[in-house]
């Protein structure tokens, strides 16, 4: 009403762009076919601060530079594909809002540490999943298969409830300074998934898993730095789970 001269279309465009901000994304790029060195590259884009970092990465990949490479599947914090180091902390790009990162400053995005970078934000997850496989993350039972479900009381289920939430995004393991060094340490994620079965009343291989984690590169290498608990996008109390495995090992022995 007050600006009747303004074109309707122009006004709509202005309203649509009103909530957008200009944010700089400083992304760690690496392409072994171009250079052996990784380098930072800045992208300035217009984006709604209520969007997530993953949306920004999409915008860059789809509209600015199609060679930007990263993993993502569900984009809703369940599949665990897009763990990356955002502003120096391991987070899921799909659960991190841009407005929470003080977007007036450049937002750094790089691959998670401790695993070999294959390209841009993609790392080789094999050592991570190897450690996961090594702790036997599956139900082990003896005797006949029951004809119905294996029953469990609510209290027994509660015992390991926290560690069932793991999505294997590797945010914890790749934030662990002990894992960074030689990668032989099982890492928080593998121990969390061992915990999930060790304390399951239906499972019968707790002894075997404890024996695996009792080894040189097992739980005793944990330095209780709490990096894993801070990094976990699912809020699992990772360090506590590791401590519970340690306690189980000690009480089993004495």
């Amino acid at each position: 009403m007050s600006t009747p001269v303004m074109d309707k279309e122009e006004r709509a465009a202005k309203a649509a762009a009103d909530h957008l901000i200009t944010a700089t994304f400083r992304i760690r790029r690496f392409n072994p076919e171009i250079s052996a060195e990784a380098s930072w590259e800045d992208f300035r884009i217009e984006i709604d601060p209520k969007e997530r970092v993953l949306d920004a990465l999409h915008k860059i990949k789809w509209e600015v530079d199609g060679t930007l490479t990263f993993r993502r599947s569900c984009a809703h914090g369940i599949c665990g594909s897009d763990a990356m180091r955002i502003n120096g902390r391991n987070r899921l790009a799909c659960k991190t809002l841009i407005k929470d990162l003080s977007p007036s400053k450049p937002i750094s995005v790089e691959a998670i540490k401790g695993l070999t970078v294959l390209k841009d934000l993609i790392v080789d997850m094999d050592p991570f999943f190897q450690a996961y496989r090594d702790v036997m993350p599956f139900l082990v039972t003896s005797g006949n298969e029951p004809t119905r479900e294996r029953h469990q009381t609510a209290e027994d289920r509660e015992r390991f409830d926290d560690t069932t939430k793991c999505i294997l995004c590797a945010a914890c393991t790749s934030s662990c300074p002990v894992f960074w060094n030689d990668g032989q340490y099982f890492g928080p994620a593998a121990i969390v998934n061992a915990h999930r079965f060790i304390f399951d009343s239906r499972d019968e291989a707790a002894e075997q898993r404890l024996e695996i984690l009792n080894d040189k590169d097992g739980v005793w290498r944990c330095r209780t730095t709490f990096n894993c608990t801070d990094a976990c996008p699912r809020g699992i109390e990772v360090t506590k789970a590791i401590q519970e495995v340690k306690r189980a090992l000690i009480t089993r022995r004495f």
Partner: peptide, 21 residues
């Protein structure tokens, strides 16, 4: 690019002792 941390044949086998405990 070889993953420097892959578990290979040269990775030490498990010791099954309680030394670290």
């Amino acid at each position: 690019i070889e993953p420097p941390r892959a578990r290979t044949a040269r990775t030490p086998k498990s010791t099954r002792t309680n030394f670290e405990l």
